[in-house]
């Protein structure tokens, strides 16, 4: 599959070849694909979402089955026809607050678009796990979004999504941590800051992103008390069609290293 430019840019000054990697929060498999393409020796793609685990296996794990390639062109992958799985990849369904990996077992951790779906308590627990599984000298790449500026229309949609999440589950769906905040958080756990890059500015929240967030809000609204749930679902649908798409905000990449 194609490695998105965001991932490629976050990794292009990192040493990936030959490393044991933890991809924290596998999502659609984008960062996993980037790690494998850059020659990782092993990638543990950990997610607590079974749909994401399936998507990652399907998009990234099957060598030669490039689902991004809609054109039906010839695949150049060497496929011996027996086992088409990339044996460097292990997709693991687990909670990142309790990563099923031993202490000091990975050389590179990537958290690409992860922190914004962690509330502060979860973020703190996940950061602790990163420190535990990282070997001496390990590297950490954290890619995320700055808080959106005041005038951004999509903030309203995220506010509705968060309201539904708070009512349904008692925690926000999204928290946008400033780069400086995450930098201090990880520095406080012994990670030496190496660099910051801007991956996207503005961030293109496309129609498909907006629709996905609206769907998320609607599904959480269904778990809310009746009156509030209906109102939140209607509000998120209305906002999605009103917003359409919006390019706003900044996505950044932070890189750290543990001392040897």
């Amino acid at each position: 599959m194609n490695v998105p430019e965001t991932v490629a840019t976050a990794l292009d000054d990192r040493e990936v070849a030959g490393t044991r990697c933890l991809e924290a929060g596998a999502g659609a498999g984008n960062a996993t694909a980037g790690l494998l393409a850059n020659g990782a020796a092993r990638v543990y793609a950990v997610t607590d979402d079974s749909e994401h685990a399936r998507t990652t296996r399907r998009r990234v794990g099957d060598v030669g089955d490039d689902t991004d390639d809609s054109g039906g062109g010839d695949s150049n992958d060497t496929d011996d026809g027996t086992d088409s799985r990339d044996d460097r990849l292990a997709v693991v369904e687990a909670d990142l607050r309790a990563v099923p990996l031993p202490d000091d077992s990975v050389d590179l951790i990537t958290a690409h678009g992860l922190c914004n779906v962690l509330d502060p308590a979860a973020l703190s627990a996940v950061a602790e796990e990163f420190s535990r599984v990282a070997a001496a000298g390990a590297r950490l790449v954290v890619d995320d979004y700055d808080p959106l500026p005041d005038g951004a229309a999509i903030r309203e949609l995220f506010a509705v999504e968060n309201a539904a999440s708070e009512l349904a589950r008692g925690r926000p769906a999204l928290t946008f941590y400033p780069a400086a905040f995450l930098r201090r958080l990880f520095a406080g756990r012994g990670w030496e800051f190496e660099r910051e890059r801007t991956l996207l500015e503005p961030v293109p929240w496309t129609e498909s992103h907006v629709a996905a967030h609206a769907d998320e809000a609607v599904s959480m609204a269904a778990e809310c008390p009746e009156g509030a749930g209906d109102a939140l679902a209607a509000a998120s649908r209305g906002l999605a069609s009103e917003i359409g798409s919006e390019s706003v905000g900044r996505m950044y990449s932070l890189a750290f290293r543990l001392p040897r």
Binding site: P4, T9, T55, G113, P204, S208
Partner: peptide
């Protein structure tokens, strides 16, 4: 990159991505 990313999502065969 923002422009590449926007176009990629417009064309993406993977629906329901919350992030970039």
């Amino acid at each position: 990159r923002s422009l590449i990313e926007r176009v990629r999502h417009d064309e993406s065969p993977v629906p329901e991505q919350l992030h970039h």
